[in-house]
Design a protein around this nucleic acid. Sequence first.
DNA 1: ACAAAAGTGTTCCTCTTACACCCATGA
DNA 2: TCATGGGTGTAAGAGGAACACTTTTGT
Lengths: 248, 248
Amino acid sequence: MSLQMNQSLSVDCAVFGFDGRSLKVLLVERRYCDSAARLDRLKLPGAMILENETLPAAASRVLAEATGLREIYLKQMEIFSDPDRVRGEELEWINRYHGIRTERVVTVGYYALVKLDARVIAYTDDKGAQWVEVEAIQRLAMDHKQILSAALTHLCREMLQSPVAFELLPRKFTIRELQNLYAAVLGIEIDNRNFRKKILGSGFLAPTGEYEQGVAHKPALYYMFDKAAYKRAVKAKLRLGFINNWRY
Amino acid sequence: MSLQMNQSLSVDCAVFGFDGRSLKVLLVERRYCDSAARLDRLKLPGAMILENETLPAAASRVLAEATGLREIYLKQMEIFSDPDRVRGEELEWINRYHGIRTERVVTVGYYALVKLDARVIAYTDDKGAQWVEVEAIQRLAMDHKQILSAALTHLCREMLQSPVAFELLPRKFTIRELQNLYAAVLGIEIDNRNFRKKILGSGFLAPTGEYEQGVAHKPALYYMFDKAAYKRAVKAKLRLGFINNWRY
DNA sequence: ACAAAAGTGTTCCTCTTACACCCATGA
DNA sequence: TCATGGGTGTAAGAGGAACACTTTTGT
């Protein structure tokens, strides 16, 4: 065996959004049309990395193109390096499109968290992209289902350790929305009283004083995430306890 | 900007070992000699990926070469993609050595856990590699210090969530060795009584009946990790609790 | 009036933490 | 006999989990 020179590096992004009920991911159509009727005609947005571009930069570029947003929460997760993960017509298309002669595409999986608002939805609609309920996705192009699964796993883990949930919610949200988000991502049921106790007791949520309007039930109070309070609490916690000053 | 074609992919491995006291990592000499006296003449073992080789396969290959071992615990962590992370004489050396013309080397960081025994040490000594105390490492070649730091962070996180500690210990070990390992990796102090209570209470440790010999104090009992018991407990735990059946 | 979700407390129990002394061995 | 680390128990407190009813609004 020898060194592989005709290889390319790409990034693929699982962009998650939350509509108050269920977790969605942004999917786009495969760009070559030979088999448009195929079940796996949808894929995650992605791109080849450019000369002099870091991977995070490439991922940001993909996200800006796909959503119109900058400053998105973005995290690297795994690399998918099966030599045959892209082949056949897909590989031919890539070579034709870019005018290159690559034999292998290694991809770096990222996941991104987006606040799903009207502007983003208008933008993605306009681009022909779709927000699809994660639970409903059976298959995707190439190994993108696998990449999506990995992204979900990483998101679960992250949600249990840091307050990334707020990246998926609008600036103002109700406790119930937050709870639904945790339940949807983790795939669990959560007791509302215990959840409130815990989340309000943490002191990271600041009430806005505003209430829901036009709902056919007692209107809920809107809260915001108090990032400063969160950081203060983390710092304080790092200074005490059984495990007091670890490395990460 | 255009697609980057003259790029290469490599893997670099932080191989950790534990000698009962402190955490060590395996370092090798940079292979070109122009500046042998430099402080950062040591690096993590690594290699370019070969044609038709997956990244995990490449990492295994590097580990087999460096330690003589197969079946090592191995985990992918992050990718280091700064376009200038390898440049100058290092890049020239790579091109000369492989007879290629690459302009950029993106590397995938792995970490590995090894049971440090006489055979491994003999093998690595023979190869001119060194086991260096992690705490003492100030700088390494290129961005390898950064890769090492990332590996440590990942190892910490992993140790708090799964029983990888046993990958670093001999088959038979004392509770104190296990405790020292946790303390060394996490960089914390641990109360011996609480540690015993927790670790023995978990039921994952099986006493061997053998005792230390030739030590100038009460000899300690040797234990082994009972993998089957661990798996049973994990399965049982997944079926109950507040968070009962999540995705990962 | 009714449907629908908001909001609120208590009890039990487990797990975490802090803490001090005697024991077995080799030198 | 001394130095060294092995091995043991308890009490107080914090946090997790299970559980049901009243309130407010729109229809």
